[in-house]
């Protein structure tokens, strides 16, 4: 599904990603953990196509295509979805109109006709139930006046509507209370399939109790310094990140 090879990226001349190697297969969930400032969110942004970053080296292959050559909208249409760490409030644009436009763009890219209004509404209702969103929330402007938890639920609702191949959840757990965390995780789990893959970026192990990863990677100073199974997350929880920092030092030596 996704092959990242020696990916390097910088922002305003400062190198943030210093050679990332990562392969994600179909149906897999990968967790990327790491201390603050390790480059986790940068990796998510670079994969989604945020233009503030300069790619200085490496490549990203997405289902046989060069992901880095694509505009953000092409990536979305090809099936890459970024659940934002800080979803943007867009006053005056209703969730419904926005989603209709987005869903139809993705369909057009796949050679499908725009959805009939009736079918679209039916799909909305089904996906709303998945993340326990009500009609009032969906009718409002995109994220406007939403609480932190509502914004994150809205991200997963959009994910459900757009049916991506690869979902990247960028600190979706930050700012969530335990109830919202359960709702969001439950939504993600229900959307899991053998055909889709997920990258879960998180600072804490807590989210991984609910969204159980197949692989855990530790990012530190722009490099993956350790990879393992889901038990690695528990080890990090118990030992903290200092242990990993030492590991990184050893590697350099």
């Amino acid at each position: 599904m996704l092959t990242i090879t020696n990916l390097q990226a910088s922002v305003e001349g400062k190198e943030i990603l210093k050679g990332i190697n990562l392969t994600i297969g179909k149906g897999e969930i990968h967790a990327i953990m790491g201390p603050n400032g390790s480059g986790k969110s940068t990796l998510a942004s670079v994969l989604a196509g945020r233009e503030d970053y300069e790619i200085t080296g490496g490549s990203v292959d997405f289902d046989g295509k060069d992901l880095l050559e694509m505009s953000p909208e092409e990536r979305a249409r090809e099936g890459v979805f970024l659940a934002f760490q800080y979803p943007v409030e867009i006053p005056g644009v209703s969730n419904t109109n926005f989603l209709k436009a987005a869903v139809n763009e993705v369909r057009k890219h796949r050679g499908l006709e725009p959805m009939e209004p009736k079918a679209f509404l039916k799909m909305m209702r089904e996906k709303m139930a998945l993340v326990e969103m009500d009609q009032a929330m969906v009718s409002r402007s995109v994220n406007e006046g939403f609480s932190g938890g509502e914004k994150k639920r809205n991200e997963i609702f959009q994910l459900a509507m757009l049916e991506p191949k690869l979902s990247i959840l960028d600190e979706t757990d930050s700012g969530l209370d335990i109830d919202a965390l359960k709702i969001v995780s439950n939504g993600v789990n229900k959307l899991r399939s053998k055909e889709t893959s997920t990258i879960v970026i998180t600072h804490y192990q807590r989210l991984l109790d609910y969204i159980v990863p197949d692989f855990v990677h530790v990012l530190y100073k722009g490099r993956i310094v350790k990879s393992g199974g889901k038990e690695l997350a528990l080890e990090l929880e118990a030992k903290g990140y200092d242990w990993v920092k030492e590991l990184a030092l050893e590697e350099v030596v």
Binding site: A48, G49, R50, E51, S71, P72, E73, R75, A76, R77, F81, L82, F84, P87, V88, I90, F98, A101, A102, E105, V106, H109, Q158, L162
Partner: peptide, 16 residues
Amino acid sequence: DEALFYLRARGLDREQ
């Protein structure tokens, strides 16, 4: 710019 990127990350092109 943030709002523009958000919309593009959902599949809308720059003009839309």
